Amino acid sequence: MFNLLLNSRNLPYPDPLHPIIVHFVIAMIFFSFFCDVVGYVTGNIKMFEVSFWNLFVASVSIFLAIIAGQFEAGLSQPYEAVKPVLNLHTIIGWSLAGFVATITAWRFVIRIHHFKKIPPAYLGVATVLIILVSFQVYLGTRLVWVYGLHIEPVVQAAKEGILQ
């Protein structure tokens, strides 16, 4: 096997990549939803095109965010208190990837067949997506701000066996 040279945050690079990539995905999903709602209310079909492309890029980028998250979670040395939140965050992350890919495929079909309008059912499902993404943001925030994953003092405490 090989050894990675890890810094004081237990990473082989200066800062965690997962939050950088995932914030991009979150912004694109929220902006896509915003554009669909504005397009639905105003009848501006250009907003539907903006929405589709944001969702399309988000559906590709979410897999990059998950790969980075899985890698960094493996390096985080999670202690017992953090494991349930980290596991739930992981399960929801993978589920969201499938959900985003599915809703993007549905959005593509809508774009081809009914490019001038969005069905209310789609907006309802997109609302569920926004709620799930918001919950996932909450879990990710807890992992950093409550449990301190990849935060230097917490990494040091875990290495010294203080956290268990």
Rank of each mutant, 00 (worst) to 15 (best):
residue 30 F to I: 12
residue 17 L to N: 05
residue 153 P to V: 05
residue 145 W to C: 04
residue 50 V to Y: 15
residue 57 V to K: 05
residue 122 Y to I: 01
residue 112 I to C: 03
residue 12 P to W: 02
residue 153 P to Q: 08
residue 152 E to F: 03
residue 77 Q to F: 11
residue 76 S to Y: 12
residue 106 W to V: 15
residue 71 F to A: 14
residue 130 I to Q: 05
residue 15 D to V: 14
residue 106 W to E: 08
residue 96 L to Y: 06
residue 55 L to R: 14
residue 153 P to I: 10
residue 125 V to N: 05
residue 158 A to E: 07
residue 26 I to L: 09
residue 161 G to Y: 06
residue 121 A to S: 08
residue 29 I to P: 07
residue 146 V to D: 00
residue 115 F to I: 08
residue 44 N to C: 02
residue 129 L to Q: 01
residue 27 A to P: 05
residue 75 L to P: 04
residue 83 K to A: 13
residue 73 A to L: 15
residue 44 N to T: 04
residue 17 L to E: 04
residue 60 V to S: 10
residue 15 D to M: 08
residue 40 Y to E: 08
residue 55 L to I: 08
residue 143 L to K: 12
residue 117 K to C: 04
residue 159 K to W: 14
residue 132 L to S: 12
residue 80 E to Y: 09
residue 32 S to Y: 03
residue 30 F to R: 03
residue 79 Y to F: 04
residue 135 F to Q: 08
residue 152 E to A: 10
residue 72 E to N: 11
residue 41 V to D: 01
residue 163 L to Y: 12
residue 101 A to P: 01
residue 101 A to N: 00
residue 74 G to K: 07
residue 159 K to F: 09
residue 8 S to V: 05
residue 162 I to Q: 13
residue 119 P to E: 14
residue 74 G to D: 08
residue 85 V to Q: 01
residue 3 N to G: 05
residue 47 M to V: 02
residue 162 I to R: 13
residue 15 D to F: 13
residue 28 M to L: 15
residue 24 F to A: 09
residue 87 N to G: 03
residue 28 M to H: 10
residue 142 R to Q: 08
residue 111 R to K: 15
residue 67 I to S: 02
residue 26 I to N: 02
residue 34 F to R: 09
residue 87 N to F: 13
residue 57 V to N: 06
residue 147 Y to Q: 05
residue 139 L to G: 02
residue 17 L to F: 12
residue 27 A to E: 05
residue 60 V to C: 11
residue 160 E to G: 03
residue 39 G to P: 00
residue 133 V to L: 08
residue 115 F to R: 15
residue 3 N to P: 01
residue 14 P to G: 06
residue 157 A to Q: 11
residue 39 G to K: 01
residue 2 F to Y: 08
residue 13 Y to M: 04
residue 7 N to D: 12
residue 93 G to P: 03
residue 88 L to H: 07
residue 4 L to S: 09
residue 3 N to A: 11
residue 81 A to N: 13
residue 13 Y to N: 07
residue 94 W to Q: 11
residue 93 G to I: 02
residue 147 Y to I: 04
residue 91 I to D: 11
residue 16 P to Y: 09
residue 103 I to Q: 14
residue 5 L to F: 05
residue 150 H to Y: 03
residue 156 Q to L: 14
residue 48 F to K: 11
residue 143 L to M: 15
residue 28 M to I: 06
residue 112 I to N: 05
residue 59 S to R: 00
residue 102 T to P: 08
residue 31 F to M: 08
residue 65 A to G: 15
residue 137 V to E: 01
residue 126 A to G: 00
